[in-house]
Nucleic acid binder design. Structure first.
Length: 157
DNA sequence: GCCAACGTTGGC
DNA sequence: GCCAACGTTGGC
């Protein structure tokens, strides 16, 4: 089974919106703060440079896909875990044995907002993991079929 | 603010 | 290894 080539990554726009990504140096940000093992393992074990990313706004007035990005680095230790002043500090982690790693994510292009509501109303997207009831995983694999369906929706008005 | 879903923790 | 308690996520 080959690694997935496409992903959906959730970001709270209060923390990092698609516009924040567009303004970042090199239009690229380190995807810090992931503190879930499954999401970490996706970044550490499965992501490859160039993988496609659906940039999703969560926990906000208009949740949905806000742009296209790509994986821009392999995984490396998350500096925030060692910072006692950070909300992402993990006292059980150490630089010798870092627990949390992340990749860098780079903007490809901002798109129109594809609202969660529209995603739910689209039969071709019904299989998407992010639409499963109770899904909380911040990084989920996307199939090539789902990726194509999202892109064609984004191109429509 | 509510609450369902679900991951993590820790006692046993 | 079980499982209850607890914390977090995230849409509404």
């Amino acid at each position: 089974m080959p690694s997935p080539r496409y992903w959906l990554m959730k970001s709270e726009p209060d923390e990092c919106s698609i516009d924040d990504l567009a303004r970042a140096p090199g239009q690229q940000v380190p995807w810090t703060g992931v503190r879930n093992y499954q999401a970490r393992n996706f970044m550490r074990d499965a992501m490859r440079i160039g993988d496609g990313v659906l940039f999703y706004h969560s926990s906000c007035p208009e949740p949905g896909i806000a742009g296209i990005a790509e994986v821009a680095s392999t995984a490396y230790p998350d500096a925030t875990q060692f910072d006692p002043g950070s909300p992402y500090h993990d006292p059980k982690s150490s630089p010798e044995a870092p627990r949390w790693v992340h990749v860098d994510v780079k903007l490809v292009r901002k798109t129109r907002l594809l609202p969660l509501k529209e995603m739910r109303a689209t039969p071709a997207l019904a299989t998407m993991q992010v639409l499963r009831p109770g899904n909380r995983l911040s990084i989920t694999p996307v199939t090539p079929e789902e990726w194509r369906a999202v892109l064609s929706l984004l191109e429509s008005a």
